[in-house]
Amino acid sequence: MLIEVKDLVKDYRVGILKNRCVRAVDCVSFSLQVGETLGLVGESGCGKSTLARLILMLIKPTFGRVCFEGQDLTDLSQAELLKLRREMQIVFQQPQQSLHPRMKLAESLAEPLRLYKLVKSKAAEKERVRHLLHEVGLSEEHLERYPHELSGGQAQRVALARVLALKPKFIVADEPTSMLDVAVQAQILSLIKKLQQEHKIGMLFISHDLEVIRGISDRVAVMQGGKLVEMGSKEQIFREPQHPYTKFLTGTVFELPTRLKRDNLRLVH
């Protein structure tokens, strides 16, 4: 088992006196196999991203355990976590904001390699950076650019290259395509899928877009108000949803061309 999450809870104290309690993630348990993709779907604000950050220990859980290859992450020190994070990485929603605005791409791509001392010499570093660029479908002319000179799709490719640089075993992809249009989304999704299969990476793929989830996942977990309300294989979730919320969500996906009948707002297939 690559990842095992048990009874994970995150409470936030809110209000001026910090006397109100909001439970962002409520008793979530699941596991993930090597090379498997679990799709996590739910509305904005249901706790998907909080869950992602909890699994990577970017924020501390209030309660519960996260195990990576059998090792409990909850009681590790920052130094020990840093070591492990080479193997567990995240791709964020806003690619342009997750790159340093004043670093050229060559720098941005070399940074993870230097941090973990993965290359021995400058020449090796250059070679590795060039290899990474090709792997995500960019060319060397991009190396001298700054993040603001890239399109959203290109920036997301760079973010992917940075993640790949570390050869991780587990990736969290947090809405990686929600800011991109259909054509670029298809490029990024097929790239993620290809890289994941080539490198046998386990992935938690978060999205509010059910079609994307259906396209990329092996298993699907449905989240509502901080809880997992249903989990199963992709076929189960999309063909025979059990929970009313899952039924509601899958009901928002249409085959093209579905038309909204405007006089009474009915759907016509």
């Binding site: 259909v182 054509a183 989304q185 298809a186 490029q187 999704l189 097929s190 877009d209 079609e211 994307v212 259906r214 396209g215 990329i216 996906v253 085959e255 093209l256 061309p257 038309r259």
Partner: peptide, 29 residues
């Protein structure tokens, strides 16, 4: 017409755009 363009797209770009939808296997252009 909406139905015409989506059901019987005539331009290769429209066809490719429809094929890049996640529901149709997200084949990139």
């Amino acid at each position: 017409s909406s139905a015409g363009v989506l059901k019987i797209p005539r331009h290769p770009y429209t066809q490719s755009l429809l094929d890049s939808l996640p529901g149709r296997g997200f084949k990139p252009i």
